[in-house]
Design a protein around this nucleic acid. Sequence first.
DNA 1: CAACCCACCTGACTGC
DNA 2: TGCAGTCAGGTGGGTT
Length: 279
Amino acid sequence: MPELPEVETVRTGAEPHLVGRRVTELEFARDDLRWPIPIDELRTLRGRTCTAVTRRSKYLLLHFGGRDRPVALVHLGMSGRFAIDVQNRRVPPPEWRKHEHWRLHLPGRLVRYTDPRRFGALGYATAATLATHPWLTALGQEPLEPEFDGAFLHRVSRRKKCSIKSLLMDGRLLVGVGNIYASESCWLASVRPRRAAKSLKIKECDALASAVQQVLRSAIAAGGTSFRDFAGVDEGAGYFARELNVYERDGEACRRCGVTVRRTVEVGRSTYWCAGCQV
DNA sequence: CAACCCACCTGACTGC
DNA sequence: TGCAGTCAGGTGGGTT
C-alpha cells in the first residue's frame, strides 16, 4: 500500500491526535508482524507523552518524552493501516477487528493498527539509538529534500546496469518511491522505465528528479493513492488515484499522446508506460 | 558488489 | 458454488 505520500498522509493526520497526549495503555494481539514485536520495550511507553510524529523513508516515527526519550517505529508494509478513533471514555473501546494487531490508548484517542498481510512492522528505539536502528541504517536520500536533484540521480546512476525504474525504487539510493510513483515519475519525465539507468543524460536526470518531486508532492496534497488498502488515520481514502496517468491504466489512452498505455513486468513488478511519448 | 529471484501473508478477483 | 491461479502499494536474504 503505502509509499512516501501515503505514509506522509498518515503522519500529518496522526500528529494533531498524538502530540501532547500521554500513552495510557498498549495492547498487542500477537507478538510478531514481519519481525518480532519488542513488546517489553514498547510497554515502557506507558505514561510517556508523545512529543512528535516524524517520518523517515516509509517509517513512521512516534517520539516520546521522558527518560531515554523512546521512539516507536511503525511500518505499514503493503496492507497496514494506522487508524485513530476519537474515544469517549464512557463508551467501551470497539471490538478488535480482523487483522488488528496492536493498539495504543491515549486520553480521548485510540490508535489501531491493522495489517492483513503482516508485512508491516513495529519497532523500538530511543533518541540515542534511533540513528543506528537496523531499519534506518543504509537508507538512501529523501526525495523531497533539496539534496535530491538531477545531479544526484546522474551521479548514482553511472555504472548501474539496472533500469531507471528499479533505480528509483532502490531504497539504498533513494527512499519513498515505490511501484506506483516510479511508473508515474517516469511517465511525467517522458522516460521509458526500462531504460538503462546509466543511459540517462543529465537533462533527463533533471527532468526525472523534478518529476519524482512533483508526483510525490501532488500525491501528498491529494492524501495519497487509495486502491485497495490505503486509508488515512480517519479511515478516509486518498484521492490521487484519479490523477494517475499510467498506473493501472493499461489498455487506456495515454493522456499526453493518445497511444495505448502498456503494462510490462520488470523484476517481478508491474510497470506501466506509454511507448508513444516515453523515450 | 550488483542484479535477480523469492519469500513473507491474506484477500480480491478471474476464469473454468 | 467452488476451486485454482494470479495479482497486490515493501523489503530483506539468498543465489548467481
